[in-house]
Amino acid sequence: MLNPWNDKSTTIRKGEELQMENLQSYLQDFFTHKGDLKVTQFPSGFSNLTYLVQLGNREYVLRRPPIGANIKSGHDMKREYDILTALKPNYGKVPAPILYCQDESILGCPFYLMERVEGVILRAKMPVEMIPSKVLMQGISNSFVDTFVDLHQLDVKEIGLDDFGKPQGYMQRQIEGWTRRYYKSKTDEIPRIEAAAKWLGENMPKEPKDYSLIHNDFKYDNLVLDSQDWTKVNAVLDWEMATIGNPLMDLGTTLGYWVNPNDPDFMKALNLTPTHLPGNLTREEVVHQYSLKSGQTVNHIIFYYVYGLFKIAVIIQQIYFRYKKGFTHDQRFAKLIDGVNLLGEITHMAIAKKRLDRLF
């Protein structure tokens, strides 16, 4: 019996429909089983588009770039497919990749198909009845950190991903790259964001000696939890930004999404992920648990936190830019600029107070 809170797909958003005849013909040539094609869309997520594909009695998940995207490195379907291909035999917590199609005559862009992993996904907006109890949320929060540490401790050489990124100079490239992307997609004057970019450029720590596979978007809504035991993580999703790099920058991105249960309401208004629910660790507790479980000393954490906030602000800014240009008509994007402003204020307070918690 399926859990009623298992993640579900719904009607495809206007303007994000797929060419059904082309897709059905392509899939029926690839698979031995036949059947009618039905496609629905997973409604959450602001980046790559994700669909549930039902062919006969089989279910798959299809991923394609967003409409109007021009950020190739962030929406490279082949790269994401290759990561899953390398990870699946060595790290069970990923969906199995099934096919990659670079023929743009099918859908107008490259795409790939992977298995559907059934389970629960905790999102920013969920029914009141679905919200975990404080005790259950404590268990989920600890499992979150455990899964994060396990990912960073994978041997990239052993799984064949050691040449997947360029770890030397990674930090500087990231700061320069996200700063460049911000100015390229700038729509409004936000002095706090520009100040954060300048501060990051002037306060980079030394590059670490050790690197790891980093996810770059590790948060609750990219984890599929077991339907019967929500403290067990069945799969980690959305590997589009994964690379080899400094794991503390990955931690910083996660902290950037993390709003504490005791943070003020205007921070909770960001509502990017349900870390504000009672029972969750605070940002400082996440860092402490990460350090204990990984055996790694976490230095310069304010730098990494500000980096995470700035990076998330730029990602939101890029999405808002696409909305303003008319590339997408998704009304969820209309007020994203408010989030960019708020993230700028949080960077300012973290730098001024030199801490992760109790910022306001």
Rank of each mutant, 00 (worst) to 15 (best):
Q24N: 06
Y60G: 00
V298T: 11
F144H: 03
G92P: 02
N70D: 13
I316P: 03
F30P: 04
H348E: 15
Y307M: 07
Y257R: 09
K232F: 12
H152D: 08
M1C: 01
N22H: 07
Q174E: 09
H276T: 15
K354L: 11
K198V: 12
H300A: 09
S44K: 15
P274R: 13
Y183W: 12
G74A: 15
Q54A: 11
G344L: 01
V156Y: 06
K353D: 10
E189C: 13
L151Q: 13
Q228P: 04
P167K: 12
V61N: 08
V61D: 02
T282F: 12
Q138N: 13
I214L: 08
K232S: 05
G344R: 06
Q138S: 10
V224T: 03
W230G: 08
G295I: 07
L107A: 01
R79K: 13
F310R: 02
N234T: 04
M349T: 15
F164P: 00
Y26G: 08
W239R: 05
N6K: 01
P89S: 05
N57D: 11
N280L: 08
E80R: 08
Y100Q: 00
D226E: 07
T282E: 07
Y304D: 00
L18M: 08
I312D: 02
V156I: 15
N260V: 06
G169W: 14
N216I: 11
Y51V: 11
Y220R: 04
A313S: 10
D338L: 14
V53N: 02
V314H: 04
E17H: 11
G56L: 00
F111E: 00
E129A: 15
P43V: 14
S185P: 06
G256K: 09
K353H: 07
E176W: 10
K293M: 02
N142E: 13
A124H: 10
I193Y: 00
V145Q: 04
M77N: 11
E285S: 09
T254C: 07
N341S: 08
K88N: 05
G56D: 05
T243D: 06
N341I: 14
E194C: 08
V94W: 01
V314C: 11
N6V: 05
D7M: 09
L154D: 05
A196C: 12
M267Y: 15
I315V: 09
N6S: 08
M126I: 15
G68S: 09
D229P: 04
Y100I: 00
A334I: 14
K324F: 14
V286D: 04
K134G: 13
D82K: 08
K293Y: 13
D146R: 12
L200K: 07
G139A: 13
